[in-house]
Simulated scan of single mutants.
Amino acid sequence: MTKSNLRKALNYSGSVIAILSVIFVGHRITQYWKQLPDDTFTVKLLLLILLLAGVYGAANTILASAWRILMVGQEQAIGNRVATRIYGMTQLAKYVPGNIFQFAGRQILAMSYGFSGKAIAKTTFLELLLLIVTGAVFILWMLPLLYPAFNIYYSLLLFAIVALLITYGLQQQGKGNLIKVIARYFSFLLVSGGVFVSVLYIVSDDWLLNPALTLPLIGAYVIAWLAGLVTPGSPAGVGVREFILILLLRPFFAEIDIVIAVVLSRITTVVGDCFFYIYSITLR
């Protein structure tokens, strides 16, 4: 097989995975929709969900930017537009059962662009490792939910210390590019947690955001997201994330509000991923 034919075959394979991803996303949205009471949706709520989905979809460009930095670190000359296109076209594959097809799709599609398969595999490993490290630090934000005497100020102080230690350690090893990557992952997780907390407050009719509770809620969401990420076979953490959130937040919110917020936030993030997908396929 010639190099040109190999690239075409890889491109077609990536397209098949992308099409399967869209099918599974449609199936997921239908399932989530059926779980909600008939009187849940109002015009105001739908507009807010679309707005939050837009915010979440835009935040995906942060992930694509971080991946580009990792690729450049592996001596792959990749531009922002190409990185965003590849990342966005394959990101929906995380909803396909198996929880690996977003990485497989990215590997195939990026190779069809002529990038090194070995370098792409290394960036996948680094991405998972750094996402886990970044997400795990958010447990410090969540501590006030588990131990009320441990207030948010102590959490933020510990968080700052850990962040400084990580930054210092990477600088000493000459890994300044990884600091940029972690900063982007932190920003993405912060936005993701903020989207969930916004949906939760909307559902519970409590518009008075309490900073002492908001940051721990974001921390709880990120930890639940992390658990879903590392659970083998769970597409986009389905089931795992919901279970942990209900377990952690039950003492603070009515269980029905938590369930509705979890389902609505799922719909919001899925729609946001679709927005990002549509945006990515327009990039040439």
Score class of each variant (00 low, 15 high):
145 L>C: 07
272 G>P: 01
31 Q>E: 13
64 A>G: 15
237 G>Y: 05
255 E>I: 12
229 L>I: 05
215 L>W: 11
234 S>A: 15
137 V>Y: 00
28 R>E: 08
108 I>Y: 08
187 S>K: 00
153 Y>T: 09
244 I>N: 05
216 P>A: 15
143 L>H: 06
116 S>H: 07
111 M>G: 04
20 L>N: 04
168 Y>L: 13
224 A>L: 08
210 N>W: 02
42 T>A: 14
16 V>T: 09
7 R>I: 00
150 F>P: 05
52 L>H: 01
284 R>V: 06
247 L>W: 14
172 Q>R: 15
222 V>D: 08
211 P>K: 11
9 A>R: 14
262 V>L: 06
173 Q>I: 09
169 G>Y: 14
91 Q>H: 15
73 G>M: 06
45 L>Q: 08
182 I>Q: 03
213 L>V: 06
120 I>G: 04
228 G>C: 02
46 L>A: 15
86 I>P: 01
185 Y>C: 03
164 L>N: 04
55 V>I: 15
11 N>D: 05
45 L>W: 06
238 V>M: 12
77 A>S: 13
159 F>E: 01
55 V>R: 07
219 G>A: 15
90 T>Q: 14
31 Q>H: 13
79 G>R: 15
161 I>R: 07
269 T>W: 03
90 T>W: 03
97 P>Q: 10
218 I>L: 15
83 A>Y: 04
272 G>V: 10
267 I>D: 04
217 L>D: 05
80 N>Y: 13
56 Y>L: 08
178 L>T: 03
235 P>H: 10
33 W>S: 09
5 N>V: 10
180 K>D: 02
103 F>I: 12
138 F>V: 08
133 V>D: 05
10 L>E: 06
259 V>Q: 05
136 A>S: 13
257 D>Q: 10
111 M>I: 08
35 Q>I: 03
110 A>L: 12
121 A>G: 05
183 A>M: 00
83 A>V: 01
73 G>Q: 11
110 A>R: 04
29 I>Q: 04
57 G>C: 09
37 P>A: 12
34 K>T: 13
107 Q>G: 11
98 G>L: 07
39 D>W: 04
200 L>E: 03
201 Y>T: 00
194 G>E: 10
144 P>S: 12
146 L>C: 01
161 I>T: 07
24 F>R: 03
130 L>K: 05
175 K>T: 03
216 P>T: 13
100 I>M: 11
107 Q>E: 10
255 E>D: 04
53 A>G: 11
138 F>H: 12
180 K>E: 02
20 L>E: 04
188 F>H: 07
18 A>C: 10
131 L>A: 09
89 M>D: 02
12 Y>A: 09
83 A>Q: 03
197 V>W: 06
121 A>R: 13
266 R>I: 00
185 Y>S: 01
143 L>P: 03
183 A>F: 02
210 N>D: 14
273 D>W: 06
23 I>K: 10
